[in-house]
Structure formats: structure tokens, C-alpha cells
């Protein structure tokens, strides 16, 4: 699990698509439709907490094993980082 602090870079934001009834992550020239868990993770990116802290908070909220949540959060954010929709910085 990464000790980095994930955040949405300039030009990336979430938007509620009323037509689809889904939350969308909007970036330069691309858009990704988020499911509820995906949106919950993105909503936690405050630019202050580490991935470890975010995963622990989500595990508590959803009553899920922190190990499983940590793996899912790391994979999800890495996928978005590869698409340049999430960035990470050292604490």
C-alpha cells in the first residue's frame, strides 16, 4: 500500500451526470463513468491523507477487511494515474 498522497490534478473533476444518473470523472478530452465505490474513493482524495489512511477510513465505513480495500484502492488509483486523471505526491 502506498504512503503517497493521491489527488486530482488541475483540470480533473467529478460531475454528476443527471441523464445517466451516475457520477463521472472528467479530465482533459476524456470522461470515465464511476460506480458508487469508485466515486467514494475519488471523494476521499483531499490532497492531505495518504492512500493508507483513505483505505483504512473506507474499510471502516463499509465494514470491509482493510487488506482487501487497500488492494482495491491501490489498483483503482494506479489505473487512473496511468490515465493521468490522478496524481500522487510524497507526504
Amino acid at each position: 500500500m502506498s504512503n503517497a498522497i493521491p489527488y486530482l490534478p488541475r483540470g480533473v473533476r467529478t460531475h454528476y451526470d443527471r441523464i445517466r444518473g451516475r457520477n463521472v470523472l472528467l479530465g482533459p478530452e476524456r470522461a470515465l463513468m464511476l460506480d458508487e465505490i469508485g466515486h467514494a474513493i475519488i471523494a476521499e482524495l483531499d490532497g492531505k491523507r495518504t492512500e493508507t489512511q483513505i483505505a483504512a477510513d473506507l474499510a471502516t465505513r463499509y465494514g470491509a477487511p482493510v487488506e482487501a480495500v487497500s488492494v482495491d484502492v491501490a489498483e483503482f488509483l494506479t489505473d487512473l494515474a496511468d490515465k493521468r486523471l490522478v496524481e500522487r505526491r510524497d507526504p
Partner: peptide, 12 residues
Amino acid sequence: MAWTKPKAVEIN
């Protein structure tokens, strides 16, 4: 809602 693997699907 229970925890499930998060998904982000690209809209083309």
C-alpha cells in the same frame, strides 16, 4: 452498501 471492487468505465 457493501464494498465491491471499484470501477471506472471510459465514455467514448
